[in-house]
Nucleic acid binder design. Structure first.
Lengths: 335, 335
DNA sequence: CTGAAAGCGCTAACAC
DNA sequence: GTGTTAGCGCTTTCAG
């Protein structure tokens, strides 16, 4: 067995309390006993038992992270940022996949509670229906990517994101615009609304709206089919499409290319998320960047603030920016 | 405070031991007392304290997962599979990012040890240099994606993967082949070797070898530059390139297109990993699929076997397969 | 079948 | 300054 604090205490000829004090840098310990104790700690290769520490009343230094999907680049990049910041702050991260199921979300919450996680960073399955589960668990919670009233939330304004993309399109010189993606699902709808509102108040035309479900499990083949179907029925009049996310944008590009359009020569396309896909797509994809690293980092900071000082729920709205790439800027105006 | 086992015991008029027995389904409890206890468990909303349970000598039901990078699709998909299987088996996953640093790897190992993780699933930073740290920690360890002698390892044969890709190229009808990627780094080198060996024994020509470092932090711009540089100096004679991974393949495609080649019309390209990038690239990218889900699932099973019965280290070599997509199959033979 | 008692390894008053 | 004493909440012999 590994050496326990008891062993160190005996060897050093002091009590466990003293060893504990030395290890937690309590000031009231003589330099000599401290040295002596540390000496034995070293010799015996003593390592603290974090479980025992936790039980004895301290925190677990464990935070739970709940996402609807781990492998979607958008989430995995946030997870990476969270892990990074958490590790830096001395916390470990338990990763949990809700799979967009309210039931699994509830199960995970009780599990995290029983594990005595110090707090939770979560993308809630549903802004409306998840709230009660999160309230019930009575743990510090910071919501991310969605604005959830009553909780600390770190997110971007999707509406404003849509506006920014519209501005970008107007700047490049597009006049007839299209949209591909969900029109009613809460966050997507706001992107769409911002986009549409800005276009209409600036007398641009919104001529093609191709409705699609949001991609799940990184599968967006529906987008491909809907684009083709739409083209067959209505034809395509847009010079540029704003797609609801990068996967949707990629699928849309594939469909448009298969229909014989060159991108961005004939039709330009932009996405949302600025994930790895946007950087590696051909042509490289203009995309609206959510500051993923900042979201992750901020979420950890906010959560720790809440854990340490029980701060009141607050909303943190982060800035987005358009990352312009070849898929829109290399478009040739027909004029 | 939440109800403790003590509270339940008092209300039910039994001892904590009995409550414990009921909760762990110990057979020697009367149906009536069991019912009574469960009744109070329900009424008081009792939830077990997993920390206390762990300390009292049981396991933590926590497994650590160590990867060099969380957000790279290849890893994030494995992580997702691991989380999924682990959750199914009643385990939670602590996610740790080694960032390819041996030092961080060591730190993480001691942390996981102090946390009393039941076991570890890891992509070691270095097959040679990581071994000692992992041995020292004396925890059940299952290595993934790399073959590590002396440890349970779940991986694919990179050499064989290279061979399979070579076969695919020969089947399609290519005769002059190229390679893009690292030539010396251990696993990459084996892919390359398998590819080369099979080509040469089948009298195909390996005419262009563009050496590049493996991408880190999802940044492979070096690939783009090296391809351009190589083309300027040597010209390009290959009909098809095998790229060491999907990101490299994407960057290579971008470079080749910018050089005026059409893909796969003039030059075909294939990648390795069959990550999301391969599916969403334009043209869709032929790629060698590692069975990521299977790797994750198998790793959990192997680790749990080791935890529960201390099985002897064993190597599990999984099958790969070529997922043929437009980037190679739509190539038009010049004949 | 059930209870009493002894820990798991550590922290944190409270004395001296 | 340092030791003593109680726990933290649960499991697990060992008796009865």
């Amino acid at each position: 067995m590994a050496a326990s604090m008891q062993d160190v205490a005996e060897k050093a000829g002091v009590s466990r309390a003293t060893v504990s004090r030395v290890l937690s840098n309590h000031p009231s310990v003589t330099a000599s006993t401290r040295k002596n104790v540390l000496n034995w700690v070293e010799k015996l290769g003593y390592e603290p038992n974090l479980i025992a520490q936790s039980l004895a009343g301290n925190s677990t230094n464990l935070i739970g992270v709940m996402v609807p999907e781990i492998a979607y680049p958008f989430f995995s990049e946030i997870i990476e940022a969270i892990e990074n910041q958490a590790f830096y702050e001395g916390y470990n991260v338990i990763i949990c996949n809700t799979r967009r199921s309210l039931e699994k979300e509830r199960n995970i919450l009780t599990e995290l509670k029983q594990r005595k996680a110090d707090g939770i960073i979560a993308v809630p399955v549903s802004v409306e229906q998840s709230v009660s589960s999160f309230k019930r668990v009575k743990l510090p919670v910071t919501m991310i990517t969605k604005r959830v009233e009553g909780f600390h939330s770190v997110f971007i304004s999707h509406y404003d994101g849509g506006v920014q993309m519209a501005k970008h399109f107007l700047n490049v010189g597009f006049r007839r615009m299209g949209y591909i993606g969900p029109v009613s699902s809460s966050t997507s709808a706001r992107k769409y609304a911002g986009y549409r509102d800005h276009l209409l108040t600036n007398r641009a035309e919104l001529v093609d709206i191709i409705e699609c479900d949001p991609p799940e499990n990184m599968n967006a083949t529906q987008v491909y089919e809907n684009v083709k179907k739409y083209a067959a029925v209505h034809g395509i009049r847009s010079e540029v499409f704003f797609a609801n996310d990068d996967i949707t944008a990629c699928e849309a590009m594939a469909a448009l290319m298969d229909l014989g359009y060159s991108i961005p020569g004939d039709i330009a396309v932009a996405g949302f998320d600025n994930s790895l896909l946007a950087k590696e797509a051909t042509p490289k994809l203009t995309s609206l960047a959510q500051p993923l690293e900042e979201i992750g980092k901020k979420a950890v900071e906010v959560l720790l603030g809440q854990i340490r000082q029980n701060t009141d729920p607050q909303l943190y709205e982060l800035e987005t920016r358009v990352v312009a790439r070849a898929s829109t800027v290399n478009w040739k105006s027909p004029l």
